[in-house]
Amino acid sequence: MSMQAALPVAMIPGNSIIHRINPIAKLVWVVGYVVLAFSTQNIVVLYSMALFALLLAPIAGITKPLLKGALILVPVGSSLLALQIIAPAVERPWTPVGEIGPLTLYGDGIYYGFVLLGRIVASLLLALVMVMTTHPSDLFTSLSKLKVPYTLNFMLAMTLQLIPVFQREVGIIMSAQKSRGMKGKGFSAVLPSFVPVFVGAIERVQQLSISLESRGFGSNGIKTSYRQVRGRPSDWVIGIVGALALGGLSAYSIWRGTWNISSDIVFSPLFVVVTFVISATLFFGVVLFAVFLSLKK
C-alpha cells in the first residue's frame, strides 16, 4: 500500500499556494462561506461563490479529486430541483407551466430550488478545497492554539485518521468472505462485512484509548506541539479579507432581508420543463445505477 493511499482520503498532498495558506485563514473562509450562503437568497452571489471555489481547484492541483468529491451533489441537487418544480416550497397559488404524465410542473419554486442548491454547492466546494489542501495535523494544531478543547479536537483528528483504516479493513474482510464463497459485490455483500469491522472497531478503540492514556493523553498540564504552523502576514491578510468580505456581504444580505432577486428573474416555462427533465433523469439515473450495481453479481 502506498503512503498516499494510507493518508486520509481527503488530503491531497501538494505544495501549492492554497496548500500553504494557514489552516485558520482557510477555516475563516469556510465559516464565512457557510454564513453568507445561509444568509443570502441572491443566486448571483451564491453561484459566484461556487465558481470562485471551483477556480481554486486548478491552482491547488486538485481539480480531479474535487470533481469526484462533488459528484455527491448530483443526486442531492437533481432531486432538490425536481422536487421544487413539482412541489414548490412557496405559498400557493402556483402557476402551472406544463405537464409530464401525471405530474404538473410549476415555475414558482424553481428560484428557491436554485438558492438551496447554490448554498449546498458553494459551501461544499469550498469545504472540499479546504479539506483537500490541509494536513489534518496542521488544522489540529491550529485549532488547539485557538483553545478548542483538546479532546474535541483530538476526536476530529482521529475520525479523519480512522477513515482509511476502516476502508482497508472492509476490503480485507470482504476478500476474506469472498474466499469463503460469499459473493463479493453489491450492498448485500458489504453489509455482513460491517459486523466484523464494527467488532474490530470496538477492540481498536479500546486498545487505542489505553495506548493513548499510557502516553499521557488527557493530562491537564501545558501541552506543546510538534508541528509548527506559521501565521505569515499573507495569512493574516487572507483571513481578514475573508472575514470582512464574507461578513460584510452577509450583513448586507440580512439588511436587504435575504437579498432575494427572484422578482428580477423570469424563468420561461420551457426552462422550467427542461430543468425538470434533466434533474429527474439525472436523479433516476443515479438511483437506477445504484440498484444495478447492487444487483449485479
Partner: peptide, 18 residues
C-alpha cells in the same frame, strides 16, 4: 491499533506533546 497520527514523527511526538 496503537497508531493515531499521520506521520511517524508525530506518533513519537504525541507523548512528548502531552
Amino acid at each position: 491499533f496503537q497508531m493515531s497520527q499521520m506521520s511517524v514523527a508525530e506518533e513519537v511526538a504525541l507523548g512528548l506533546e502531552n
